[in-house]
Measured scan of single mutants.
Amino acid sequence: IRVFLPNKQRTVVNVRNGMSLHDCLMKALKVRGLQPECCAVFRLLHEHKGKKARLDWNTDAASLIGEELQV
Results as ranks from 00 to 15, higher is better:
residue 45 L to V: 15
residue 19 M to I: 08
residue 52 K to R: 11
residue 46 H to N: 13
residue 22 H to P: 01
residue 27 K to T: 12
residue 48 H to R: 13
residue 46 H to W: 04
residue 53 A to R: 09
residue 29 L to Q: 00
residue 37 E to K: 06
residue 38 C to E: 15
residue 13 V to M: 06
residue 60 D to Y: 00
residue 60 D to A: 06
residue 6 P to Y: 06
residue 64 L to T: 01
residue 64 L to D: 05
residue 36 P to D: 02
residue 50 G to P: 10
residue 13 V to C: 14
residue 27 K to S: 13
residue 11 T to W: 00
residue 19 M to H: 03
residue 9 Q to Y: 02
residue 9 Q to H: 07
residue 30 K to D: 05
residue 48 H to A: 13
residue 58 N to R: 10
residue 1 I to G: 00
residue 24 C to R: 12
residue 22 H to A: 14
residue 57 W to V: 06
residue 25 L to H: 05
residue 58 N to L: 07
residue 38 C to R: 13
residue 40 A to I: 08
residue 53 A to G: 07
residue 28 A to M: 06
residue 14 N to D: 11
residue 16 R to H: 11
residue 38 C to A: 14
residue 34 L to N: 01
residue 53 A to Q: 14
residue 15 V to P: 08
residue 71 V to D: 05
residue 7 N to R: 05
residue 24 C to T: 13
residue 26 M to Y: 15
residue 26 M to L: 14
residue 12 V to Q: 10
residue 30 K to I: 12
residue 9 Q to S: 08
residue 67 E to N: 08
residue 65 I to A: 14
residue 55 L to P: 00
residue 17 N to F: 06
residue 3 V to C: 05
residue 16 R to W: 08
residue 36 P to H: 04
residue 4 F to S: 11
residue 15 V to D: 00
residue 59 T to A: 10
residue 7 N to T: 01
residue 44 L to I: 10
residue 66 G to N: 06
residue 6 P to F: 01
residue 28 A to T: 13
residue 31 V to N: 10
residue 33 G to Y: 05
residue 16 R to I: 12
residue 52 K to Y: 14
residue 55 L to K: 05
residue 67 E to G: 04
residue 45 L to H: 15
residue 9 Q to D: 13
residue 8 K to L: 04
residue 9 Q to F: 08
residue 55 L to Q: 02
residue 11 T to Y: 05
residue 25 L to I: 06
residue 18 G to K: 10
residue 31 V to D: 15
residue 36 P to R: 07
residue 12 V to C: 13
residue 27 K to R: 11
residue 58 N to K: 10
residue 19 M to S: 10
residue 71 V to Y: 03
residue 53 A to C: 10
residue 68 E to T: 14
residue 10 R to S: 14
residue 34 L to S: 00
residue 10 R to Y: 15
residue 48 H to P: 14
residue 38 C to Y: 09
residue 46 H to Y: 11
residue 44 L to Y: 07
residue 10 R to Q: 15
residue 64 L to F: 11
residue 55 L to C: 06
residue 8 K to N: 12
residue 33 G to P: 01
residue 50 G to Y: 12
residue 44 L to V: 14
residue 38 C to V: 09
residue 46 H to V: 09
residue 44 L to N: 12
residue 39 C to H: 05
residue 26 M to E: 15
residue 40 A to R: 12
residue 62 A to R: 11
residue 2 R to W: 08
residue 52 K to H: 07
residue 2 R to L: 07
residue 23 D to A: 09
residue 23 D to I: 04
residue 40 A to M: 12
residue 21 L to V: 06
residue 45 L to W: 10
residue 27 K to H: 15
residue 54 R to K: 11
residue 62 A to S: 14
residue 7 N to L: 00
residue 25 L to Q: 01
residue 18 G to W: 00
residue 60 D to R: 01
residue 35 Q to E: 13
residue 58 N to V: 02
residue 46 H to K: 12
residue 6 P to G: 04
residue 28 A to E: 15
residue 70 Q to K: 11
residue 49 K to Q: 13
residue 8 K to R: 11
residue 50 G to N: 03
residue 53 A to I: 10
residue 38 C to I: 05
residue 42 F to P: 08
residue 5 L to A: 01
residue 61 A to T: 02
residue 39 C to F: 01
residue 50 G to H: 15
residue 34 L to A: 01
residue 9 Q to W: 00
residue 31 V to F: 10
residue 56 D to F: 02
residue 2 R to H: 07
residue 17 N to Q: 15
residue 56 D to P: 11
residue 31 V to T: 15
residue 34 L to D: 09
residue 22 H to N: 06
residue 10 R to E: 15
residue 27 K to E: 15
residue 54 R to L: 12
residue 12 V to W: 07
residue 10 R to N: 11
residue 20 S to E: 05
residue 17 N to P: 15
residue 38 C to Q: 13
residue 17 N to A: 15
residue 29 L to S: 01
residue 29 L to G: 02
residue 39 C to S: 04
residue 51 K to D: 15
residue 39 C to G: 02
residue 44 L to R: 10
residue 43 R to N: 00
residue 19 M to N: 02
residue 64 L to P: 04
residue 38 C to S: 14
residue 56 D to C: 03
residue 11 T to Q: 06
residue 53 A to N: 10
residue 36 P to E: 08
residue 20 S to C: 03
residue 33 G to H: 04
residue 65 I to R: 06
residue 17 N to S: 13
residue 10 R to M: 13
residue 70 Q to T: 11
residue 57 W to C: 06
residue 50 G to D: 12
residue 10 R to I: 12
residue 44 L to H: 11
residue 11 T to R: 02
residue 20 S to D: 08
residue 13 V to G: 03
residue 65 I to S: 07
residue 29 L to P: 03
residue 21 L to E: 06
residue 3 V to P: 08
residue 45 L to K: 15
residue 3 V to H: 04
residue 20 S to L: 03
residue 11 T to L: 14
residue 49 K to H: 08
residue 33 G to E: 05
residue 63 S to F: 06
residue 22 H to R: 15
residue 64 L to R: 01
residue 63 S to G: 10
residue 64 L to C: 14
residue 35 Q to D: 15
residue 33 G to L: 01
residue 30 K to N: 12
residue 40 A to H: 12
